[in-house]
């Protein structure tokens, strides 16, 4: 069973934190197809958050085809996120390595690169959630 935690200082919307944690658990193999997610009441009783926030996170996961809500039974994992990602990881790692080398060549130091990466990440996050 997944154990949700909140990072209150992160500035990321609470429902998105829940969505990310389910995806992370799917990637790491903590959750498998067929597993039941905790009920809204279970989550709420632990985190003291609004139940609609949990339902919104589950709706988002359902929209992405990762879980299915079965009325009266609960919300179940439909598929995992693990398999293809290892290959993708290796490829993305190579590409990022290339970007980092180009950045160094252009005179950026580690801190500049981190700031750049964070800024691109933030921008793409805004585009996704806009």
């Amino acid at each position: 069973m997944i154990d949700f935690r909140l990072d209150k200082g992160s500035g990321v919307a609470t429902y998105l934190q829940l969505v990310h944690q389910v995806k992370q658990a799917l990637r790491l193999g903590v959750l498998h197809a067929g597993d039941r997610l905790p009920t809204a009441k279970d989550v709420v009783a632990k985190l003291a958050i609004n139940p609609n926030t949990v339902l919104k996170a589950y709706r988002e996961l359902e929209r992405e085809g990762l879980v299915t809500a079965r009325p009266g039974l609960g919300t179940f994992v439909e598929r995992s996120l693990g398999t293809a990602s290892l290959v993708d990881h290796a490829r993305l790692r190579r590409e990022l390595g290339r970007v980092v080398r180009e950045g160094r060549a252009a005179g950026l130091d580690d801190e500049d690169l981190r700031a750049l990466f964070t800024s691109v990440l933030t921008d793409s996050f805004r585009e996704e959630t806009a």
């Binding site: 909140l6 009441k41 709420v44 949990v54």
Partner: peptide
């Protein structure tokens, strides 16, 4: 929040500490 999840109760609560209400109120 657990009672709200269970029953659909509507809650109106006053506070002058906004940080208490983040995450719980909608």
């Amino acid at each position: 929040m657990a009672v709200v999840a269970d029953t659909g109760l509507t809650v109106l609560l006053s506070s002058h500490v906004v940080s208490d209400l983040e995450n719980t109120c909608d």
